[in-house]
């Protein structure tokens, strides 16, 4: 009887996948978990922040507008938790909106790079030979173009819009990823399980998707989390130059630019709040990437 029940439960032996192992390792890393929590909080702030304040990011508070310097500071009574911006708009609403844009740019950039870069690199690496050569030379050529210059030209010619910003970021973000994915593929494709799949007659696209990409993903995820802050900084730099998102929309970079311009009037909150969000999320992304790298390190399984 006892044996029978044992056999019964043995029917559903669950394996410990490498992903499961990695998850366990990740959750043991306190800094990484704290970063994850911070990033979740920031995302919640971006999504639900606009419901907390009665002000929108476009509205001007005419009552306080005349004397932003003395009356426009952060205060609960006026309803401006982060104070006002130089034009008398609610800074809280604007930071919420800027967070949305900045996170979106970071995440979209990373997504494009993960999808396009990984598939492109894995294909080039796996197929090899002349096709690999051509594909990687295309990457080299795109990399050799001074993208900042091209992006600025794009924004000037086609007008400043978020769409153009995404186009620019989409153009450059996958290049490094393609190289990394190709390099990893070269080492994976000589493993015997890939050979076994070839010998079995599995088609090339299926081998890439089923055998190569899942084994690349560890490296790719780590690099993607490190790419998000890079993209955010990239956008901030463009916005800081005044070429980024268009008013009334804003982003962390644009807000920091605005705040930095007002520093000499002593309204430091205008710089402080966006800078605070910018810095902690960058730190959080870096620590998260670090934690993921430790967790997904292919060397220990």
């Amino acid at each position: 009887m006892n044996l029978d029940t044992n056999m019964e439960s043995a029917e559903f032996l669950k394996g410990r996948s490498l992903w499961g192992d990695a998850r366990a390792r990740f959750f043991r890393n306190k800094a990484a978990v704290a970063s994850l929590i911070i990033l979740i909080l920031i995302s919640l702030f971006a999504i639900f922040g606009s419901y907390v304040t009665p002000w929108s990011n476009e509205e001007i508070d005419w009552n306080l507008m005349g004397d932003v310097q003395t009356l426009g500071g952060p205060s609960i009574e006026t309803g401006h938790y982060f104070g006002l911006d130089p034009l008398g708009r609610d800074l809280f609403a604007r930071v919420v909106q800027g967070t949305q844009i900045s996170l979106m740019i970071g995440v979209v950039g990373a997504l494009i790079s993960v999808i396009v870069g990984t598939l492109y690199g894995a294909t080039a690496g796996f197929v090899g030979g002349r096709i690999d050569n051509i594909m990687m030379r295309i990457v080299d050529i795109l990399m050799a173009i001074p993208y900042m210059f091209v992006l600025i030209l794009l924004l000037v010619v086609f007008g400043r819009s978020i769409f153009m910003l995404f186009v620019g970021i989409g153009m450059i973000s996958w290049l490094d990823m393609a190289r990394i994915a190709r390099g990893q593929t070269l080492s994976i494709k000589n493993k015997e399980f890939v050979e076994a799949a070839v010998a079995t007659g599995v088609s090339t696209p299926a081998i890439i998707l089923r055998h190569i990409v899942p084994n690349l993903l560890g490296v790719v995820i780590v690099y993607a989390t490190l790419l998000v802050p890079q993209m955010i900084m990239f956008e901030s730099f463009i916005s800081f130059l005044g070429l980024g998102v268009q008013e009334p929309l804003t982003s962390w970079g644009a807000l920091i630019n605005e705040g930095a311009g007002q520093m000499r009037y002593g309204t430091l909150w205008m710089l402080g709040f966006p800078l605070f969000f910018f810095l902690i999320s960058l730190f959080a992304f870096f620590f998260l990437g670090d934690g993921l790298r430790d967790a997904l390190d292919p060397k220990d399984r």
């Binding site: 394996g15 992903w19 076994a196």
Partner: peptide
């Protein structure tokens, strides 16, 4: 090495 580590 002849078995894909990500598959059951």
């Amino acid at each position: 090495a002849s078995l894909n580590p990500r598959m059951t």
